[in-house]
Write a protein that binds this DNA or RNA. Structure first.
Lengths: 247, 247
DNA sequence: ACGGCAATTTGACGCAGATCAAAACGGGCG
DNA sequence: CGCCCGTTTTGATCTGCGTCAAATTGCCGT
């Protein structure tokens, strides 16, 4: 009986935002050290989600928001008929579950693409603490707003780019987010399948595969299975800039 | 000198949330009468935007959020190359500008599709008042969250529906929003052009036109220019439900 | 190390929707 | 009231990407 409690204690300790390397990127970004201490109380539980497992499911009651500490996840909206549309990929320091605040019900599934650790942030605690710490309140608004801004970008992509432009935009987005986390911006591991990329980009897996092959043939990237190296990042940027745009 | 001031006074009066017929739908939804009185102070300016004019432009500094009082607007994301993607249509009681909170800069243009009246809500005032009125804070979070949820729906539409499914989903969405405002759910005026519908749905105007004609031929709707009557709403619902889904 | 299954690649072909074109319509303004 | 220009409709044709298929590769579990 004592042992599990002890484990929980250790978990709590490890979960503290104030000692977390992501605190500049995550929810507590921009807080003073004192405020950071308070926020530590917010995150009172950590959860591990193994590759392929769900963090939450569409329709489930909102229990908490989740900040990704390590790992990689996707969220996908489900059709009635079983088909799924990937609405986003999420990496460490990012917050998930914000779509559920409006209705108290998740409207997408959150699935781990590799073993992941997340911090649980009960919404009610976040709201009450926001009242005490205005800059937390403000920062949370910004995080939600940025999610809206991201979504607008995805709409732009889905609504008016052609296949290779979409893929280029996708790779550049990943590149930039890895860079922001101190990883290489030109060489990384794609944790999702071609099918998942395709779903996110509104394309079929074959089209994604062909586009990647074509990029490789042009010398823009070097792909080997899920390992990707960007060779000519400027050319990719150009592709996204200038649309010959069909829609 | 006295006259313009007087006009402003009258405007202020008319702008009060507590006397606004939209307060159940808009930002102050769910507040007590006392709280509502406080929120009146938030909305200290009203603005008229004529058909075709911009409420704000992409890249502009965030001045305030805007609640639509009357009229109809679109927001569109711009490509570097001048093409535009309509990210949403907005009607009375809806809040615009939330995408700009994260960066303090608007990332889309807001254009009136008919002469519109909007209430200006300075973000800083909203934030400070949220601290005093928890339910306002909570409700604002919900409004932002619902925008995220809406965006996920649009992604689903753009990423995995075929042309006629998209149009059906669009019509049903309009129908539902008009109904929520006490207008007919089956008969309304399309304030946007076929091209704008197409841009929103990731289709070309000709495709939108053809799809509408096809719906009419099937007896699902009656269209005459911008006037639309939904005849078989259940059939439209079925269309959106069951995808033969290509992406 | 090996077997089996999932993921990826590549090719051939088809089709939904884009593109091009032109006619019809409608609404705002002089 | 009638003209003009922007919007819409409809037709014909083209094409990017989806679909189907099959071969290849790589990864996971035993």
């Amino acid at each position: 009986m004592a042992t599990p409690l002890h484990i929980v204690e250790i978990d709590k300790l490890k979960t503290a935002c104030s000692t977390c390397s992501l605190h500049e990127l995550c929810l507590p970004a921009g807080l003073t050290p004192t405020e950071l201490k308070s926020v530590d109380q917010l995150v009172n539980r950590r959860r591990t989600v193994k590759r392929g497992e769900h963090l939450y499911r569409s329709g489930a009651q909102l229990q908490a928001l989740y900040a990704i500490r390590t790992g990689f996840m996707k969220s996908c909206v489900l059709h009635e008929d079983g088909r799924e549309q990937v609405a986003g990929f999420h990496m460490m320091g990012e917050l998930m579950g914000m779509d559920a605040i409006g209705t108290n019900q998740h409207l997408c599934d959150a699935v781990a693409l590799e073993d992941s650790d997340v911090c649980e942030i009960p919404l009610s605690d976040l709201e009450s603490m926001s009242r005490e710490i205005p800059s937390l309140h403000q920062h949370f608004n910004r995080v939600m707003s940025r999610e809206i801004a991201r979504d607008y970008g995805v709409m732009l992509l889905l609504g008016s780019m052609r296949a290779e432009e979409r893929l280029a935009a996708f790779l550049l987005n990943l590149s930039q987010r890895f860079a922001a986390r101190g990883y290489s911006s030109t060489e990384f591991h794609l944790r999702m399948t071609r099918e998942e990329i395709g779903s996110y980009l509104g394309l079929k897996l074959e089209t994604v595969s062909r586009a990647l092959s074509h990029f490789q043939a042009q010398g823009l990237v070097a792909v080997q299975n899920k390992h990707l190296r960007i060779l000519k990042i400027d050319n990719l940027r150009e592709m996204v800039g200038q649309h010959s745009c069909r829609a």
